[in-house]
Structure formats: structure tokens, C-alpha cells
């Protein structure tokens, strides 16, 4: 037995009690440390996401041709001028791919954000209030979730008509149900904590409790969920666009580009590059989703590891 233990029992002081004080680090130091420990898959994911964001932000500077610029050359093969050839209307596929990054990712991010604003705030409110409103919201969400969301989306699009704005709202509302469930569940775990009760006993208002006590403690799972929801929304919108009821022409979008050029696959025997043309936007979708999933996987591992300490 060591001497330090001895001293402690004889001269007990509250301040001297053994604690695991972690070295304090600034936010930046922490970030660098965390990034250094990231596995290769997470690095791969982050690099890919950064590249996509770069392309999306600077699309007009990067694209050799305009988004809807039509050339008198339909189904042109791959060449120096048309790097990935042209489509049925004679539009440059490579340029549309670049503009597609901006449109497809932009719409998916907007939809996910909207879903989180709706579902997240209602979820926290339901968890705190635990009254009839919670009951009504929860039952309503149960019913909405009883219909597969792609089917529901198809039905709503057939009524309201297929365009980008309707698409964003419909998918956001449908996806908000899942965000609501998760937010409510994690917020419920926090609401039962004694510190929330202590705040209520102190007489704090609902707004303060939500902002100061609950929100900071539910952020990690919500951030991870944002990544997963983004993937889901991104794939749903891609599927709808592919089905022809999502983002409408002439807006360049990866899902519709696959649909527009799908016929070229039959020519694989004669010209493999032509057959690859519809595959490239599909691969672009897959790559981004894989990248986000890798990062989320790492993040989840990281935060759940912290909880075990």
C-alpha cells in the first residue's frame, strides 16, 4: 500500500480528494487531438465530404459548360471538350454532374435541416411537457410512421405536384417524425435527471430549461442522427428524382441524370465509357453516403466511448 493513501485517510481534506482531473485543453487543441486519432475510414469520409462541399460551392467556376447549355450533339462520346460526353439533349454531362452536386446536396441539406427544426423542437417540447400534447404528437407520429415514407411521399407528390419546393417540404415533414421520436427519447433520458428537477424546483421557465439544461446534453446523439438522416433524405430524394417525380428538369440532379442516361447501359459491349455515363452520378451519390456513414460511425464510436468512462 502506498504512502499517499495513508496520508489521505489521516489528513482528509475535501479539496485533496483524489480526482481524475483531465488536462484542460482549448477547443482547437481538442479538435486536433481528436482528428489525429481518427481512423483511416473517417479520414477518407471527411476528405470526400470536404471535396463535395468544395465542388458544390464553386460549381460555376469549376464547370466547363453551363448547367442547361444545349449543344447540337446528342449522346456525344467522352472527349476533351465533353469530358463525360453529352446527354440525349446535348447537354454536357460533366458540367451537369458538377452543378448536380450543388442542387442535390443543397436540397438534401435544406430538407434535413427543416426536418430537424420541426422534429427536434417538437420532440424536446413533448419530452418536457409530458402532457396531452406529448400524447397527441406521439400518436400522430405513430400513424405517419405506419406508412412507408417513400409511398407516402409518392402519394403526396401526386397530389401537390412534383417540384423542388414541394419535395423539400414533404420529405422534411415525413422525416421529422423520425427526428421527433429520437429527440423525444434522448430528451426524456435527460428530463428525468435530477438537475432538470432541480431547475424546476428553482422555478426556472420552460425556455431556460430547454436551452440550458436539455439542449447541451442531447447534442451528440442529434449530431450523429443528423448525419444518418442526411443519408436517408439524400437517398430518398435521389430515388424520387430517379423515378421522375423528384427534382424536375432542367435542374441538374444526380438522380434524374441516372434516369436520363440509363439507356446507354445497353451499349456496354460497344462502348464501355458510354455505359458508365449513367453510373457516374449514381456512384457520386453512393460515395457521399458512404463517406457520411463512415464519419458518423466514427463519431458514434467516439461519443459512446466517452459515455463509458
Amino acid at each position: 500500500m502506498s504512502d499517499s493513501n495513508n496520508n489521505q485517510s489521516t489528513n482528509y481534506t475535501a479539496a485533496g480528494e483524489v480526482t481524475l482531473v483531465k488536462a484542460r485543453r482549448s477547443f482547437l487543441e481538442n479538435l486536433i487531438r481528436t482528428l489525429k486519432s481518427a481512423p483511416p475510414t473517417a479520414w477518407f469520409g471527411m476528405v470526400v465530404i470536404a471535396a463535395y462541399l468544395f465542388v458544390a460551392l464553386f460549381a460555376p467556376l469549376l464547370a466547363p459548360h453551363g448547367e442547361a447549355e444545349v449543344f447540337p450533339l446528342a449522346y456525344a462520346p467522352w472527349s476533351d471538350e465533353f469530358i463525360l460526353g453529352t446527354d440525349a439533349l446535348g447537354r454536357d454531362v460533366f458540367s451537369r454532374l458538377i452543378y448536380g452536386a450543388r442542387n442535390t446536396i443543397g436540397i438534401a441539406v435544406a430538407t434535413t435541416l427543416l426536418a430537424f427544426i420541426i422534429g427536434g423542437s417538437l420532440g424536446v417540447i413533448a419530452a418536457i411537457s409530458r402532457n396531452w400534447m406529448d400524447q397527441v404528437l406521439s400518436r400522430f407520429v405513430d400513424v405517419l410512421m405506419a406508412i412507408p415514407s417513400l409511398i407516402f411521399a409518392l402519394m403526396l407528390l401526386s397530389i401537390f405536384g412534383a417540384n423542388a419546393i414541394n419535395l423539400i417540404f414533404i420529405i422534411a415533414v415525413l422525416d421529422a417524425t423520425r427526428v421527433f421520436r429520437l429527440t423525444r427519447a434522448v430528451a426524456l433520458n435527460v428530463v428525468v435527471m435530477d438537475y432538470v428537477e432541480a431547475a424546476r424546483l428553482r422555478g426556472e421557465g420552460l425556455g431556460w430549461v430547454m436551452r440550458k439544461e436539455i439542449l447541451p446534453n442531447i447534442m451528440p446523439p442529434l449530431v450523429a442522427e443528423f448525419g444518418l438522416r442526411f443519408c436517408f433524405v439524400f437517398l430518398t430524394i435521389a430515388a424520387l428524382s430517379f423515378l421522375g417525380v423528384g427534382i424536375q428538369p432542367p435542374t441538374a440532379d444526380w438522380g434524374s441524370m441516372v434516369r436520363e442516361n440509363a439507356g446507354l447501359i445497353q451499349f456496354a459491349e460497344y462502348d464501355l465509357t458510354a455505359a458508365l455515363t449513367p453510373m457516374i452520378p449514381a456512384a457520386a451519390i453512393a460515395l457521399l453516403t458512404v463517406a457520411v456513414n463512415f464519419v458518423v460511425d466514427w463519431f458514434l464510436h467516439k461519443t459512446s466511448g466517452l459515455r463509458d468512462e
Binding site: 430515388a239 447501359i265 445497353q266 455505359a275 449514381a282 451519390i285 453512393a286 458512404v290
Partner: peptide
């Protein structure tokens, strides 16, 4: 695989097992 859109998986299969 779960990150792949369904149509991507489908077209890969067509490309490999049907046209090639």
C-alpha cells in the same frame, strides 16, 4: 451497401450480368 442507392446496385448488376 446500405449507402448505395437501390438503382445503383441494380444498374451495376445489369452492367455486369446482363450487358457485359
Amino acid at each position: 451497401t446500405i449507402s448505395f442507392p437501390e438503382f445503383f446496385v441494380a444498374y451495376i448488376l445489369i452492367l455486369v450480368f446482363s450487358t457485359y
